[in-house]
């Protein structure tokens, strides 16, 4: 199963992608990694720092939005690119607790691409499929 696939046909100035996962955990990990990959080549990032993340929302879809939003927020607030995620869901998938690892931003070391400004709600979608889960996300670049 593909982890994620960028979609060039939508919102051409921005970054649209489909993320996939056999489980909801896998979907969240892959969607998070795709967001990071818009900003930096993940192979140039060593996961030597850890952030604990706890989030809650009233639906799985809104929780996915919060999760991606947190990755974008930490890029500026903590100056960190996150590439390695361990996630557990609580309260019937309305809460998540995650360990996210990455590295403080270092332009000399990292293969930096573009700044992600925000996670948009344009066509934002999370759905269950026969193979597991699929999401569609557009990030504002």
């Amino acid at each position: 199963m593909k982890k994620y696939e960028y979609d060039d046909s939508v919102a051409i100035g921005d970054c649209a992608y489909h993320a996939f996962g056999q489980t909801l955990e896998e979907l969240f990990v892959n969607a998070g990694l795709a967001a990071t990959e818009c900003m930096v080549d993940p192979d140039t990032v060593d996961a030597d720092q850890e952030q604990e993340i706890e989030l809650s929302a009233d639906s799985e879809s809104n929780l996915l939005y919060e999760w991606l939003e947190e990755i974008v927020y930490l890029k500026d607030a903590e100056d960190i690119f996150l590439t390695d995620f361990q996630i557990e869901f609580l309260d019937g998938n309305k809460k998540l607790r995650a360990k996210a690892r990455g590295e403080k931003i270092n332009p000399q070391k990292h293969g930096i691409k573009a700044d992600v400004k925000a996670v948009t709600m344009y066509r934002f979608d999370l759905k269950k499929t026969e193979e597991g889960w699929e999401a569609f996300i557009v990030l504002d670049l």
Binding site: V10, A11, I12, G13, D14, T120, M121, Y122, V138, D140
Partner: peptide, 9 residues
């Protein structure tokens, strides 16, 4: 103008 999110650019 071009394809954006919400409003077009």
């Amino acid at each position: 103008g071009h394809w954006g999110y919400g409003f077009p650019i």
